[in-house]
Design a binder for these strands. Structure first.
Lengths: 235, 235
DNA sequence: GCAGTAATGCACTCGAGAGTGCAGGAGAGC
DNA sequence: GCTCTCCTGCACTCTCGAGTGCATTACTGC
């Protein structure tokens, strides 16, 4: 939604500046990034940035809000995919697929750097951190919660709290990498992400499946499965 | 291990400065904290800080390394508790207890602010972020992995990868709060932490229990438990 | 083409905070 | 008590980056 009649020069500058600002801020952080760097990267005069955005804070806000909006659109499309798997014939496989899809989209690409930046600046721009949380991650959680609530109603899954179930799903499939990503700028390998996602999805299904009794693990040594989990102390 | 013969005045100053620096850095972050603030908080001349630590970077390193060492000692003691529950009579309850203990110790108290600070400064001080990860969280993970490996060998738990199992446990019981804590400076309530930890521990046990068949959830509506998870499409 | 508006370049101010120099005071060790 | 070392206070320098003023240039809409 462009303003009334905007000078195309301004439109062009705005685009150049926001792209450059995203790159610079994501790489250096708010404090270490300088407006001169953004100007140079954008191929634009510093004065132009100040003409359009007023000051560095506003430039940052505009940049981040744009990134969040992108992540938001993306979450929305993922929510659709999530909803779709409620109809899947093979639920186990569908869950595994959505797990991989979700993990890859969060852990590979620009989301992790954005998260680092927002966390770093959550003191200075708490409203941006909140904005991010209310959109990207929450949107996904809501979609997952809706899915699990639906599946539970139809007797395909345990009927625990859908919200909690969604959290368990999300953190089982990518919790470790998500956490590591806050400290380590090197992104995880796609291979690792997929493996973790699939393993997490399996654990999730063991925890939340209904009516299936987990078969004893064939790799477990000796010990003819104790009847209950308690009273295992070898007296 | 104090150096050879240290002037007691220096020892005293050092202690005052590190305490003050921890407080100031944790509250403001590295860049927004000023050496003058640290000096004033410590009740010490700015010049003394420079005499002892040379520059702001070194002051920060010393401060953080001390915090990490504290967290480290703490992790070690927690590792002992973790190991102890391998002998527990009621495994389910022991796991739930250790879950609450672990979650509280990480989410309530100084760990979350430290994590935020380290994440914020991971670009400037990658070695500190790495140091932290190699000590505090990894120590706990190793302890958990040892525990689960042990339990698996004794046939009390699924024999999946102990390391992966440990991650699943940790992120089931506190993943959501851990993540939120990176963006939101308000600590979670103890009540919430305990509830999440217990719920996570339950899910974990459903996923990793051996030999127990999950009873159908009494709150689940209708639907006489489908025989398998797949082929659930009402068609 | 012409008028108006935006972008440019560049020199500039300003404030803040890191780090220093130094002279004098005070406690530690003997 | 004497000496030596550390701490103190304070004024100082330096650097760096945010933000401004302004005259000039270039593009846009008509």
């Amino acid at each position: 939604m462009p303003h009334e009649h905007e000078d195309p020069r301004t439109v062009r500058s705005r685009a150049l500046i926001l792209d450059a600002a995203a790159a610079v801020f994501l790489e250096r952080g708010f404090v270490d990034a300088t407006v001169d760097q953004v100007a140079e990267t954008a191929g634009v005069a510093k004065r132009t940035i100040y003409n359009i955005y007023g000051d560095k804070d506003e430039l940052f806000r505009a940049t981040i809000l744009r990134s969040i909006a992108t992540a938001d659109r993306f979450s929305a499309s993922l929510a659709v995919e999530v909803a779709a798997i409620a109809e899947a014939r093979d639920l186990a496989q569908a869950l595994s697929q959505i797990a991989v899809r979700l993990a890859e989209s969060v852990l590979i690409g620009p989301v992790l750097p954005l998260r680092r930046l927002l966390a770093s600046e959550s003191r200075r721009f708490p409203e941006l951190a909140a904005e991010y949380r209310d959109h990207a991650p929450e949107a996904v959680m809501r979609a997952l919660a809706r899915l699990f609530g639906d599946l539970a109603e139809r007797g395909l899954l345990r009927a625990a709290s859908p919200r909690l179930t969604a959290e368990h799903f999300a953190f089982l499939i990518m919790g470790a990498d998500l956490d590591r990503g806050m400290f380590d700028p090197a992104p995880p390998t796609r291979r690792r992400v997929r493996a973790s996602a699939r393993a997490g999805a399996e654990a999730f299904q063991r925890a939340y499946a209904l009516g299936t009794c987990p078969e004893p693990d064939p790799t477990a040594p000796e010990s003819g499965r104790p009847r209950t989990g308690s009273r295992a102390h070898p007296g």
